[in-house]
Simulated assay, not measured.
Amino acid sequence: MLQEVVATRYVTPLREGGSLPGIVEADDLGTYVMKFTGAGQGRKTLVAEVVCGELGRRLGLRVPELVAIELDPVIGLAEPDQEVQELLKASAGLNLGMDYLPGSLGFDPLAYEVDPAEAGRVVWFDALINNVDRSWRNPNMLVWHGDPWLIDHGATMIWHHNWPGAQASAAKPYNASDHVLAPFAPDIAAAAAALAPLVTEELLTEVVAQVPDVWLEGEPGFDTTDRLRRAYVEPLLARAGSIHERILMEAPAAPRPSQVPGWLTEHLTPWPHPTKKDRAARADTGRTSKDGDR
Results as ranks from 00 to 15, higher is better:
48 A>Q: 05
4 E>A: 11
15 R>D: 12
263 W>Y: 15
101 L>W: 06
213 D>H: 03
39 A>E: 01
26 A>K: 03
284 D>V: 14
279 R>S: 09
184 F>W: 07
50 V>C: 04
293 D>N: 08
222 F>P: 09
122 V>N: 00
110 L>I: 08
9 R>H: 12
220 P>E: 10
43 R>E: 08
245 E>P: 09
237 L>P: 03
279 R>A: 11
160 H>F: 15
239 R>H: 04
9 R>S: 06
81 D>F: 07
21 P>E: 00
211 V>E: 01
196 A>T: 01
160 H>T: 09
50 V>Q: 02
271 W>A: 14
147 D>R: 14
68 A>L: 11
134 R>T: 02
263 W>M: 13
232 Y>A: 07
142 L>V: 13
224 T>H: 10
74 V>Y: 09
241 G>I: 11
201 E>R: 15
27 D>N: 13
96 L>M: 12
159 W>G: 10
290 K>A: 12
41 Q>S: 14
134 R>F: 05
91 S>M: 07
80 P>R: 08
280 A>H: 11
162 N>V: 09
119 A>D: 00
106 G>D: 11
43 R>S: 08
159 W>M: 15
231 A>W: 07
102 P>E: 13
235 P>G: 01
29 L>M: 12
230 R>Y: 06
55 L>P: 01
160 H>A: 05
150 L>C: 03
34 M>D: 02
228 L>T: 04
51 V>E: 02
84 V>N: 03
133 D>F: 10
276 K>D: 13
157 M>L: 15
185 A>N: 14
138 N>G: 09
92 A>R: 11
29 L>K: 14
174 Y>N: 03
276 K>Q: 09
284 D>N: 08
1 M>N: 06
179 H>W: 04
233 V>L: 08
25 E>L: 14
2 L>H: 04
149 W>F: 15
103 G>L: 08
289 S>H: 10
228 L>D: 00
92 A>P: 00
267 H>N: 10
189 A>T: 11
36 F>L: 12
245 E>Q: 14
112 Y>A: 15
226 D>R: 14
192 A>S: 06
55 L>S: 01
51 V>T: 06
117 A>D: 00
288 T>E: 13
189 A>P: 01
